[in-house]
Amino acid sequence: MSAPILSAHNLVKHFNAGGFGAARKVVRAVDDVSFELAPGETLGVVGESGCGKSTTARLLVQLLTPDSGSVRFDGKVVGPELPLKAFRSKVQMVFQDSFASLNPRMTMIDAVAFGPMVHGASRGEATRKAQDLLDRVGLDPARFGGRYAHELSGGQRQRVNIARALAFDPQVIVLDEAVSALDKSVEAQVLNLLMDLRRERGLTYVFISHDLNVVRHISDRVMVMYLGEVAEIGPAESLYSAPRHPYTEALLAAMPSLDPDRRTLEAPLAGDPPNPIDPPPGCRFHTRCAHAFGPCSTQVPVSYKVGKSHVAACHLNTSKEQVA
């Protein structure tokens, strides 16, 4: 892999869930998460609710400060080595709720122009840029520029949100369930737009979604998270065809079949994902894992290299080389 454009190093984020002293409850939202992004690649992030994928996204764009660990952009640690404001224009985010992510009192032109103005563009320049971008994401600026968020459909609003992120000329965009709330036919349009923009501008994406089909379609590499930890990370192709973590395997098996002659016969996992407030010791997945054995309930699995840039944190891979 070429020098990473963005990387996360041992990110940890715990939230207080109430209580004091010994009774204090801590949500271990993200625990020791590290990964790297090569320029121009798309990293898909999948996992169930409570797995920490949204928290990871917010840590990555510095909307949350990690308890420990760091984010590096172009090799420079954000904060000490790279000022936050400069980082902001390099890494942008698109949220799931297209309506809540637009100020209801702002026209779409103003919403897109806000970013460049924060970074010193004049109103005229910023407005011109906003018009170009609305046009680029498929919204006629003359028709939509003066509208407010509630006058647009979900798909149109999400296009505006993409335009707003693009207005910084970023190199990385973190998409947190950005297409999940859209209807399928509209989702396909927005996915096409994202893929076109990626090619045109050489963008790097972090694509977070619960939809494994969509993640496979758009991603070069995929990271699977479970209860705040990385279970497996690897090229989309090999991760989908030969998962090396039982949780990845279960997620893939839980996907509804699109073939009426090969319906799912058995649910791969029983019960709901456990609560991240008090995660199980050892491997956090061992309570639901069909392959759990001796060390799983006591030892936290290290990462094993299971293929070319393919890593899994599971004791079943002990024969493989460990990753530092």
Partner: peptide, 11 residues
């Protein structure tokens, strides 16, 4: 529902 729970309910 989450994917692994959804398939349980469907079945």
């Amino acid at each position: 529902l989450d994917a692994t729970v959804q398939i349980q309910i469907l079945l």
